[in-house]
Amino acid sequence: MTTPPAPHTPLRIGLLGTGPWARNTQAPALAAHPGVRLSGVWGRRPEAAESLAAAHGTEAYTGETGIDELFAASDAVAFALPPDIQAPLAVRAAAAGCHLLMDKPVATTVAGARELAGAAERAGVASVVFCTLRFATGTAQWITEQAALDGWFTARAQWLGALYAPEASSEYAASPWRREKGGLWDVGPHVLSVLIPVLGEVTELTAARGPADTTHLVLRHASGASSTVTLGLGAPVAAVGMEIELRGERGVVTLPDWGDAVGAFRSAVDALTESVRTGVPHPCDVRFGLRLTELLAEAEAGLLVSRRL
């Protein structure tokens, strides 16, 4: 395990990425966190890195050498990059002794996620995967409370966005990986990060295709409970929404409003800091990120098989 910073010493966290997620969520959360010093911003486009770094009073890094320079200036690194760019860079960061604050999914191939998990284990670095609902103020405690209860019978989850509707205007719609992989890979990790701690590991998975990029999943969990999940980014604007409902011996409960992304990311930073300080792995670490990738890849493979039938 890498040596943690001395008590009361701010954790130096570098940020890789300059897109909308970095600008809107990660950079503001890191710059304002009292226990953190934003040690720099790396971007593929020098002007974007310089602009975001200047906005938050830190250094800009670019190019291949800039990546290693940021690692050297940081105790940990946060990623706001497409998953299959994130994964190999995180392997490099772990080898450089940097703790990891990953975005979901950690990769879109099982091989990439497995290599990352192995690199983090070999380096002895702490890691947290930012699945928003696991860290948001409105939902994190709710998940913990439901996970402590027995007797859940079934769950129903739905997350539909309208990124690609003609009348929609989201800067996240420009993301090539998001358009290619769809709601299964983008919002699927969020839903699974709620269902798995409450209902248990997924033991059976069936996937079916819906309209546009919509994917339907039927899951069986280790507890014996089942769940159904609907995921998509291409719904009509009037159809968007997110809800998760649990039914069991104690009745019916629904996921509360989760709040804002900046606050949730700040809590993920707290979780990483605690894991660095104590050496205790967080439940939502790169090993959990690997498991999510395995499940999403299994679902995607099932969709391909059904398309050929």
Score class of each variant (00 low, 15 high):
282 H>L: 03
3 T>Q: 15
139 T>A: 03
231 L>T: 09
38 L>S: 05
96 A>P: 12
44 R>T: 10
239 A>H: 14
99 H>K: 06
39 S>W: 10
165 A>N: 02
288 F>P: 07
83 P>M: 09
273 T>I: 02
65 T>V: 03
84 D>N: 13
254 T>A: 15
184 L>E: 04
233 L>H: 08
6 A>W: 01
152 W>G: 06
116 L>G: 05
114 R>W: 02
255 L>Y: 03
289 G>H: 07
86 Q>D: 08
154 T>E: 15
117 A>L: 11
233 L>G: 08
251 G>T: 06
113 A>Y: 01
47 E>H: 12
51 S>H: 09
183 G>F: 03
238 A>T: 12
13 I>Y: 11
205 L>K: 06
101 L>F: 10
277 R>V: 10
182 G>V: 04
74 S>D: 11
52 L>K: 07
41 V>N: 06
65 T>C: 00
16 L>G: 02
151 G>M: 07
189 P>Q: 13
57 G>H: 12
96 A>R: 12
148 A>K: 08
196 I>Q: 15
203 T>E: 11
138 G>Y: 07
169 S>M: 02
66 G>A: 05
49 A>Y: 09
259 G>M: 08
213 D>F: 13
146 Q>S: 09
65 T>Q: 14
18 T>L: 07
211 P>Y: 01
33 H>R: 10
161 G>K: 04
70 L>M: 04
254 T>S: 14
11 L>Q: 04
85 I>R: 07
168 A>W: 02
217 L>Y: 08
237 V>M: 14
279 G>I: 05
228 T>S: 15
136 A>W: 10
107 A>K: 05
98 C>P: 06
14 G>Y: 08
81 L>M: 09
247 R>Y: 07
266 R>H: 10
25 T>R: 03
301 A>N: 14
92 R>S: 05
63 G>D: 12
304 L>G: 13
238 A>E: 15
64 E>D: 13
174 A>D: 15
86 Q>R: 04
151 G>C: 03
209 R>Y: 00
188 G>A: 11
211 P>E: 09
208 A>E: 15
208 A>G: 13
126 A>M: 10
192 L>E: 04
104 K>L: 06
113 A>R: 03
58 T>A: 11
220 R>S: 13
89 L>Y: 08
181 K>Y: 14
51 S>N: 03
202 V>G: 11
103 D>R: 04
280 V>K: 10
200 G>D: 09
136 A>Y: 06
223 S>H: 14
277 R>I: 00
257 D>E: 14
248 G>C: 11
303 L>C: 09
16 L>K: 02
25 T>G: 00
109 T>W: 02
131 C>G: 03
182 G>E: 05
145 E>R: 13
148 A>Q: 10
99 H>V: 04
244 I>S: 01
100 L>T: 06
159 W>E: 13
130 F>G: 00
68 D>C: 01
256 P>A: 10
243 E>G: 14
194 V>D: 06
212 A>Y: 00
248 G>T: 05
122 R>F: 01
196 I>C: 07
